[in-house]
Nucleic acid binder design. Structure first.
Lengths: 195, 195
DNA sequence: AGGAGATGGTACCGATCGGTTCGATGTGAG
DNA sequence: CTCACATCGAACCGATCGGTACCATCTCCT
């Protein structure tokens, strides 16, 4: 986490460290909730270093969101694949790991969607679109392999459930059952499509 | 919309006008995307007037969100009641008006949820919680009247669908069918609960 | 040994932030 | 007519914003 004192050795290493540190703070406090000065203090880097690596605060934000999207999609995909070939088991596994995420102490919703809510401009908005599209591919794939009558429709509905559960878990879920509710709904929709 | 030049007649009238004007700009640009100076310019009021009525920018934001929550919940409730006593028709009407909302030119998601995403502090977060709770009551009521086996569960699942559709419509809905997809899912869940 | 490059720290820049104050203007109620 | 009040417009405040420049330091490579 701390950047080594003086180093000409790890240009990329430093960048990765800054990215990882900044991710957490920007998520917790919001993109506009933390200034560049405090950001540097928190990640243990100087302004010059940060600007040399990312060009601007928006550049840093973009890099953070891009990395986060990749990481999250990869994480969910792995959870699905680890559940074996059965689509029911895959959906169950997916909403279970989502539930684990929702229950983590600092959970504040989806970082990419949150960012797009805070910045109506292209970088964040575009990334959110791509992020949800990736979710959609993952979910539609499950619907197809399950033999659903309308896999594309079911995939979009599963995406709605996923995003809805994330929002509800963030803003109104006193008993922490959003993921479980969504899971049951997902399985019910799967059954209703004869799968 | 324009505030009358000089007036000792409408203390409350002015407040209502400011509230209505500010609502649109804060929604379009985000709570932190517009400063108080520009806000005043846009609503056609001076800083002094604004601060006398609302005390602070956060005070204005809180008043705006409170009014918006009341208005939206009342609007959805009316749409449901206007659909007659049949729960299927009520759900259909609800997601249809949501679809109309999603298709409006300046649609940017739910203002209250967006605000809570931008401000992690009590005023906005609390209002979002209450806002979703109100949605939940409306939806659970439909589930009960439909004779669902588990109306509370179904109500929560319908809330997930509503919020999910709103997020998807905002960030990734190239063909504008989020509301329709959610509606079909809602009716399917209703049927699956024997209602 | 020495040069090149990455870094931390700090001072600094203009712009904007939320918020306050003041005077001028116009309105309504007495 | 007069007084109280609401309002506008603008000046002003300290703080913070994103971003730049400079320099001493440290590590690696030659």
């Amino acid at each position: 986490m701390p950047v080594p004192k003086g180093t000409a050795l790890d240009p990329d290493r430093t960048r990765a460290t800054l990215l990882a540190s900044a991710t957490g703070i920007l998520y917790e406090r919001g993109l506009d909730g933390v200034g560049v000065a405090e950001l540097c203090r928190a990640v243990g880097a100087s302004k010059e270093t940060l600007y040399r690596h990312f060009g601007s605060k928006d550049g840093l934000v973009e890099a953070v969101l891009e990395a986060r999207s990749d990481r999250v999609v990869h994480w969910l995909t792995e959870a699905v694949e680890a559940a074996g070939p059965d689509p029911h088991a895959q959906l169950t596994a997916l909403f279970d790991v989502l539930g684990d995420w929702y229950r983590q102490p600092g959970f504040r919703g989806c970082a990419i969607v949150n960012a797009a809510t805070q910045r109506h401009a292209p970088p964040a908005r575009t990334l959110a679109d791509r992020h949800l599209a990736r979710y959609g591919e993952l979910l539609t794939g499950i619907a197809e392999r399950a033999g659903a009558r309308e896999p594309a429709l079911l995939g979009r509905q599963l995406l709605i459930l996923l995003e809805g559960a994330t929002v509800v878990a963030d803003h109104h879920d006193p008993h922490g059952r959003a993921a479980e509710d969504a899971k049951q709904a997902a399985l019910a929709l799967l059954s209703a499509q004869g799968a």
